[in-house]
Every structure is written in C-alpha cells, then in structure tokens.
C-alpha cells in the first residue's frame, strides 16, 4: 500500500493511523486501515457506500473506540475513547446533518455547550462570545451573513455549513473533519463552501474532506485516500492521479500499479460479500 510522503517531505503528519481494526459483532468493518492527514492540507477521504468512511471518521472522532491499531496524533500515541477526548486533542467533526439549533442565533450555536461565563453568578458573557464569533467568521473571510445575531433558521444551506465549520474552527482545533459538506448545496453555495475549505487548510489546519463528488475532491484536495471495503486502497497525492484512477480505486480497489494487489482485492471482495 502506498502512502505518499507529502510535499514537505520530512513534515510529520498531524494524524497518523496504522492498521486500524474495527468490528461490530461479526461484521468486520475496518480491516487494518492506514490513514494520515497533514496540517495545511486538504485530505479527501473517498469510497463507495459501505466502504467504512463513516466508521473511520467516528473512530477518529472518538464516537467508536478502535479495536486495534495505532492512533498517533501530533507525534504522540493517543487513546481517543470519547468525543470529548477528541475535542481536547483539537479534533472537530462537522457532520453531514449539521449539528445546529435552528432556534438559536449564530453566536449561540458556535458556543453551544462551551458558553463563556462571567462573574460569581456565572452569567453568560454575551459580549465576549459575540466578539469571538465575529472575529472567527472574519478570519475565515465570511461575508455572507449580515449579523452574528441572526437565527440559524433564517440562513441558507451554504451559510449554515459555514457556521458549522466556523464553530469547529473556533476552538483552536488542529484537525477538522467535514462529512459531505456540499451534499445538499447548490452550485454557487458549493463553490462558497469549497472556498472556505481551502482557506482553512491555507491557515494551517489539517482538513479531512469526505465527499462523493469527484469534482469537489479534485478541486480542493492535496491528498486523496480511497477506502475500498474496509481497507485503504491507496492514499495518493492529488497531482499524481486522474479522475479515472480515483474512480477505479473506489469501485475496484485498484488502478494499474495503485491500490490493493489483485489477490488482496479479490480476497477482500470475497469477505465483503460474505459479510
């Protein structure tokens, strides 16, 4: 299995997974997955339905505990057993079904569960939160929302996605995982969100982008990791592959020299069919 060295050669990936195994009862979902994500890069995670993308992300985010394998974050082995532990490391996940409350405004959503309080009575520090939220959105050059005190119910799909991403960035996170951020968006809003994704990476964050849309993946990613039936078919540089090669990695697990060797691929396929 080929894992690319990255453009900065020596730079250590912020997240490195080795041989991750995860089963749910008899169903073996992740079969020794290797994966890495680097700061300042967009790493696309692609794969067909059921390839294990969601499971892998939930393992990274601490929703599921891994059965076996190495989880190295920022050069140190980490034991991520809960979403809280992942947040503490600086890992934030923006889920597909946007975890936003419609009835709250942008500031309230961004600080949900982590509200700033002030004084002995521990009252909410609205001014501080509003200021920080405004600064975060400004740092991401978000100019599409009129006021940070707008209710989320009044925002468009793209704006909601923007708020969800800004919420993840607010907490000095190092790795942001975006689960299908453009799935429900129109053309203009997709461009807007991809723009933001690129900007996050340019600011030095490690971004993992899960997407079914090959155009999105090819447009913004630096590195592409293709999962095939619970195994990492290949993680390659964006510049070294074509659209066709990625599609082959996703659908067959291999493409020419890339990917799983044919025997492994068919063995995996056999297992997959049994499961």
């Amino acid at each position: 299995m080929s894992v690319d060295a990255g453009p900065r050669g020596a730079s250590e990936p912020i997240l490195r997974l080795r041989g991750i195994q995860k089963s749910f009862g008899p169903v073996h979902v992740l079969k020794g997955v290797d994966f890495e994500a680097r700061s300042g890069e967009v790493t696309a995670l692609v794969g067909d339905n059921g390839a294990g993308k969601s499971t892998l992300v939930k393992c990274i985010g601490g929703t599921y505990a891994i059965d076996e394998g190495e989880y190295i974050f920022d050069g140190r082995p980490a034991h991520v057993q809960s979403p809280r532990a992942a947040s503490a490391l600086g890992i934030e996940i923006v889920y597909q079904d946007l975890a936003l409350c419609d009835n709250l405004d942008i500031v309230e959503n961004m600080f949900l569960g982590r509200e700033e309080v002030v004084g002995a009575a521990r009252t909410l520090d609205e001014a501080k939160m509003e200021l920080m939220a405004g600064q975060t959105l400004a740092s991401l050059s978000v100019r599409t929302v009129k006021s940070v005190r707008q209710k989320v119910s009044s925002l468009s799909g793209g704006q909601r996605q923007t708020v969800a991403i800004a919420k993840a960035v607010l907490w000095n996170s190092k790795l942001v995982i975006l689960d299908e951020p453009t799935a429900a968006l129109g053309v203009a809003q997709t461009a807007q969100v991809l723009d933001l994704v690129r900007r996050l990476a340019d600011q030095g964050l490690a971004v993992v982008l899960i997407s079914h849309n090959m155009n999105d993946v090819l447009q913004v990613s630096d590195s592409i990791a293709a999962l095939y039936l619970g195994q990492m078919a290949a993680q390659v540089r964006r510049s070294e592959v074509t659209h066709t090669q990625i599609v082959e990695l996703i659908t067959a697990g291999r493409s020419g020299d890339l990917g799983l060797t044919s025997s492994v691929a068919s063995a995996v396929e056999g297992n997959g069919a049994q499961a």
Binding site: P83, Y95, D97, L98, A99, L100, C101, D102, N103, L104, E108, L112, G113, R114
Partner: peptide
C-alpha cells in the same frame, strides 16, 4: 433552548 431546538445537536455539543 438548545435541547428544544435540536436535541441531537445539543447532545453532540
């Protein structure tokens, strides 16, 4: 308010 608006979002938060 958060639980009333979206309890799943509140749980994740």
């Amino acid at each position: 308010y958060a639980v009333g608006g979206n309890d799943e979002a509140a749980r994740r938060a």
